[in-house]
Simulated assay, not measured.
Amino acid sequence: MNSFIHLTIPARAEFIDIVRLTLFGIANKAGFSYEEIEDMKVAVTEACTNVVLHAYSNAQPGVIDLSFELEHNGITIRIKDEGSSFKYKPADSKAATLHDKELSEVTAGGLGLFMMHALMDKVEVFSERGTEVILTKLFGRKEEMA
């Protein structure tokens, strides 16, 4: 049976720690290793930071809706905003080519999607009304198998 946990926070940097603590509690209870939890925390922090920096203007403060779904084979984390839509394809193609670049060539903020892909087993991005990032981590999945 799948378990769902929902969390809504203001889209402000000082609330991202609440997401990290919630994720730690859920993932620890589910049986993920310390390293897997740390990887997930980095990926989720990147996704939430993107919302804080890019989704809402200062005049229009918004929220980040998160859901954590525990499944028999892992966890799926959804990070959703209702702000300015994010153009996924161009950023994704840049992320895919980072292995050919020197760190000095990568633009600020250009590592977020790359890191999410490197740390999680599956990353999906939908940008219709706002943006939704869906991150999946499977139990016992070793990096060399990904």
Rank of each mutant, 00 (worst) to 15 (best):
P61A: 06
T97P: 04
I64N: 01
G74R: 04
S57G: 15
A27N: 05
V63L: 12
F15C: 13
D17W: 08
V63W: 04
I77Q: 05
I64L: 05
M115D: 05
A55Q: 09
E36A: 13
N58L: 15
E128P: 00
V51Y: 00
I77K: 04
H72A: 15
A91N: 05
V42F: 06
G140P: 13
E128Y: 11
Y34L: 12
H99K: 13
I64H: 03
Y56P: 12
K87L: 14
V63H: 01
A59F: 03
G130M: 09
I134W: 00
A30D: 06
I79F: 01
V19P: 02
V123P: 06
I64V: 11
Y34P: 01
H99V: 15
A47E: 02
I18W: 02
T22E: 00
K41W: 01
L113R: 05
I5P: 02
T45F: 14
Y56F: 11
P90E: 01
Y56L: 04
K94C: 15
I26M: 02
L23F: 06
L23R: 03
E71K: 13
L119D: 02
T22Y: 00
E124N: 06
F126R: 12
Q60N: 15
L66G: 05
S84D: 13
F32S: 04
A43S: 10
T107C: 04
I134N: 03
C48T: 10
G130L: 01
I37F: 08
M145H: 11
I75R: 00
A43V: 08
V52W: 01
M40I: 12
E102P: 09
E105A: 10
D100R: 14
V106D: 00
A27Y: 05
G74Q: 01
V51D: 01
G110H: 01
A55C: 07
V63A: 13
N58R: 14
R20K: 10
A96E: 13
M120N: 05
G130A: 08
A108V: 12
L111K: 09
E102H: 14
Y56I: 08
